[in-house]
Each structure stands twice: as structure tokens, then as C-alpha cells.
Design a protein around this nucleic acid. Sequence first.
DNA 1: ATGAAAGCGCTAACAT
DNA 2: ATGTTAGCGCTTTCAT
Lengths: 346, 346
Amino acid sequence: MAWMRSETMATMKDISKNAKVSIATVSAVINKSSYVSQELTERVNQAIQELNYRPNAFARSLKGKSTKTVAAIVTDIENPYYPAMIKGMDDVAIMNGFSFILCNTANDPKRFINYLDLILEKRVDGLLISNISLREELEQVEKRGLNYVLLNRKPPAYDKNYVGINNHLTSELSVKHLVTLGYRNIAYIGGDLKISTAHERWEGFQYGMTEQGLEVNASLVFHGDYTIESGYKHAKKMISVQKRLPDAICAASDMIAFGAIKALRESSIRVPEDIAVMGNDNNPYSENFIVPLSTIDHLKYDMGKMAMESLFERIEGKERGIDRQIILNPSLVARVSCGWLNRSKD
Amino acid sequence: MAWMRSETMATMKDISKNAKVSIATVSAVINKSSYVSQELTERVNQAIQELNYRPNAFARSLKGKSTKTVAAIVTDIENPYYPAMIKGMDDVAIMNGFSFILCNTANDPKRFINYLDLILEKRVDGLLISNISLREELEQVEKRGLNYVLLNRKPPAYDKNYVGINNHLTSELSVKHLVTLGYRNIAYIGGDLKISTAHERWEGFQYGMTEQGLEVNASLVFHGDYTIESGYKHAKKMISVQKRLPDAICAASDMIAFGAIKALRESSIRVPEDIAVMGNDNNPYSENFIVPLSTIDHLKYDMGKMAMESLFERIEGKERGIDRQIILNPSLVARVSCGWLNRSKD
DNA sequence: ATGAAAGCGCTAACAT
DNA sequence: ATGTTAGCGCTTTCAT
């Protein structure tokens, strides 16, 4: 009765009995690994249909080497930065006939370690990790001998398998855009400097300012984290402390920009009329934000895609697989939060 | 050399040799399945440390019954409706010590079938499916004898394992909110009626209108799909066709509302001053949308969570597991797109 | 308290 | 062209 939920699925043995052939023949038919006569092939296929047979992937990879499985550990699937990235990974995995285990740590370091062990037990062929900032976390990965590539964030001075975007350039682009539009007195609200991307964006900001012949005003620099709350808090502080507001804010993430704009609006300061705000990362929310946010796009889908491709090169190349870093270039997305016209300010 | 990426990991046999005990003893130590002397236990643990051993989950579930794995098939991980739902599922899976395979079909029916077979081959213990609308798709699942629970959407007249929200009520709530605020001439822009949720929301709208003693004006009703584009298109059409606009729009999803508001703004029609717009589903974008959107919250996280809990009941209860449907109640989230005050319109 | 050995479902080398 | 058989890593009786 094919329609019944059979507690134990049919096995090759069942097929071989049903089709009155040997197990090896069944295997040969399924894997097309050697010639089998028309007749037996049919009998076997027939039996497979009848018994609703599906090979057991475990038994298979017990013998063989590969489990045809890859995994990814990401810090927060609810953060809009990641879904596109995950889709990029998944698409490539599928394309290669691999299955893909997604592990969401929800920013819990304990869950991270648990996942590492789980992945080991599942004998996964490769692992993508989005967001390792601490060298110790990386060590946990390496000491387990996992085949991995890092995504997005990386620990200090890491120079191996990594795919990310040129964060330094994101800020340069921001500054250049702002300056082109006529803004010169620019505040910076950044992320946690312990995170590589935040660090790079901050460096890029300083570099960009210098390049434009501008000075970074230390009283207009804030470091927090990539959240709405942090952007809100620091903008509030800036508003209350400064007698004269800067004419632009360069935020290190769109979330920060959202928070800053909220704070600004609460004080009836208009964006972009009174002050320009530049985001960074092109969050899917940004286009339709209260004020459509000018920002820097990060090619998140491609990041995931290329990271997975890179991982597959390592998997294919077995032990070898030369370490390499892929750095994607960001691009400017001009919307309305920075205005469009050259305004002259006294 | 523990730091080396060993192509083949240590096995129980290796441990047993290293610790000079039998394989059975190793197994007993690892699973605490029978008493082992202090001394041997230590020797075994020692060897496990040294060889960096991790049990092979495959071999394990080859013998035993359960693979300790669940899967979920979702239609679109990039749609902001789902990440929270997925997190709910994942959290419960983790809690139960199961691993969780996420399958994203990207709305591709072929990928759906492929995933079904994959899941079968991996001998997954249970499956969650968000978004089956077609009876034929369900049949594919059932004929494979999979242990599943449906989420969010369901095929017509489906009365088995399902977790969703009361879509009928979402529209009732919308209408009631609108009417309370003084709106009476209400347009409806809905989704694809072949989708259960869209159908239910449309039914709920009609019911709600009647309940409020209002008539549904057929020329103000549009059915499309849950996208920005669809909302935009139908609002445009309405604007161009109607000599006199309704005083409110009830949209069947936040995306539709976004699109409608876009169209409205393009025609310099203000929201909520000139027309109120009500969303549905409380998309994470909505709070900070161009005009913060009043909408109906869907408890997406809980949907995922409860669906997974329901699935575990089925897994635990083996073959049994009574079929049941869990319907969550939505709630109103009043923001600015519908205004706050009772306005009198002639 | 410990160990030997059978067997889970499959693949692949070897026989026939 | 087809079948026999030895493992893969582990769990689990069953002996000792």
C-alpha cells in the first residue's frame, strides 16, 4: 500500500527481491555504474516505482567519501542584510547538487560552537561562516579541521579564505557623493570598531575626507553599532550637544541612518533640506524608507554566491584549494536623503 | 597532528585501539548506555580528545531509527514575511536537539519536487512547508509518505495538519479600524484568489463591510497579487478611472499598500490626509515606510515556532499524531497611514 | 564490567 | 551481464 506512511522505507534488498535480481544490479541501475540489460533495468525500475523506493543518503555517504552537503552559519537571519546572501549561497549549492544546512546563531556564541560540532557530526563537506570577528572563534573552526570560507566579517589580520566587500571604499564613495553635492561639514556615525567592516568603514571615511581636503571633526564622530537604536542615540546626542549642526551625516549602515533620521525628524530637522544623511549597505527597506535613503550597495547576493563558489573550489580541489580573498566593489545608490542639487551653504 | 585537516576523521575503531578497549566500550562511554569503569571511561575520553573524535551522525542513524533532522520548504526567503517564521522553526528545532535543513524554492515548482526527493533521501524525520496552494503539490508530499505540517497557505478544503493565522479576521480588523476612524467609502486591493490567504482576506473584507453596515463597491475592488507592483498598478488604475476617490484603501498585504501609496503620492494624493491606507501582515519595513503603515500583525515568529512544535508532536507520537489546525489571532497595529482622528467627510 | 559479532543500506571490487 | 561479498561507522544483543 504505497499510500501508507511506512515507518521503514523500502531498501535495496527489497527492490532486489521484488525484481528478482541481485543487490548489485539494483545499485548498478540506480547509479548507472555499469551496463544492465534492458529487461532487468525495467524490472528494477518497476520495483522502485512500486515500493516507492528512494536511496538512503546516509548509507551512501557512509561508504563513499562525500556527504554532498554544505552548511552556512550566519549570525542573524532576521537582519535584512542576510536573506539575499543566503539565497546566493543556496542557489549555488543547489546547482551543484548539494544540500544546504542553514545555521542561525541568533548572535549566541554558544549556539555557534554547538553548530560547529553538529556540522562535524554530519560530516558536512564545507562550511560558510558569515561573521567571525574574534580570532578565538576562528580557532574553534580551525581546530576542528573544517573546510570553510569566511564571509562579510573577518578577524583581525585574517588573510585566508574570505569573501567580502570593499568596506573602505564604501565610505570613500559616501564622502565623495556628499562632497559632490556640496556638503563639507560631515559627521560620522559608525559601528563597533571591533568588527572588521566597521573598522574598515571608519578608516575609509577618514581617508575619503582627507582625500577631499576635508578635516574630520572629532566632536562629530560617534562609534556605536549597526542598529537603529544606536543611530538614534548618537544623533540625539549630537543634536543636543552641537550649537550648529553639520550639513551631512555619513552613517556606517542603513540601520544607523534610519535611527539618525528618526532622531532628526523628532527635532523637526528636515532631511535632506536641513541636513543630508547617507546610509551604507542598501538595506531592502531603504528605498521606501520615510525618506528614501541614499546609500551604498553591497551586492549581498553575489557575496553569498561567490563565497559558495569559492567553497566548492576548495571541496573539489580536496586538500588543496589555494587560500584566497575575494573583495567585491560597492556602488553608489543616490536617492533622496542627500538631496540632488548643489546647495550653497554659507 | 590535530591541527591538520584530516581527510578521514577518526572513528570508533581508532578510539578503541588508542584506548585499548573494545568498540562496544567506546560506544557505551559515548552514549552512557551502560556502566563502564572509571578507568576505561577515562582512557576512552582521553583518546577522544587526542584524536579529536566526533561520532558520525550517518552511521548512527543508519542503525537507529531517527536522523534527528527536520526540514522546511519555504517559497521565498527574501520575502520579509519569512525570516521571522524561519527563526521560529529553527529555535524549536535547536531546542529539541535536531538539525534543521532549510529549503528555499524561490517559487520554482521544480525545485519544490527536487527538495521533496532530497528530503526523502536524507530520511528527514519531519517537514514543514510554507505555502502549498495547489492540491497537486500536496499530493506529491503525501504520496511520498512524508511526515509534514503545513504553514501559512493551504490547499482548498484542507483540514489536516496546519498552522496559520486567521486571515478572515485580519480584514475584519482592518475594516473595523477604518470605520472607527470615520472612513466609509473603502476600496479593496487584494491578492491572488487562488491563494488561501488571499481568498480568506477577501472573504473577511466582505464580511467586515457587511457587519459594519457598509456596501462593497465593486468598482473599488481589485485582485492582483501580494506585490508592490500589483498594488501600484491597481491604485493607478483606480486613480485614473474614478472621478471621486474612496476615502480609504484596504490592502491585503503591506507590499500592496506600499505600491498603492507610491501611486497615490505620484498623483500628489496625500496619505493619510486625502486618503487612508491600511496594510496587512506587518512587514518589518512598514514601521519606517515613507508613511508609517497601519497594518495587521501576523505573529510570524510564533507561526514558525508552533508549526515546528506541532511537527515534533507528530514525530514523537510516531505514526499517530492527531491531525490538527492551529489558527493564530492577528492584531491591529495603528500607525499613521490611516490617520488617528475622526475626520468628517461630506 | 567488558568484548565479540551481527547487521543497518549501500558501494565497489571481484567472481562467475 | 549479473551476482557475491567485504566493508563503511556505529549500535546492540549476547557471551564471557
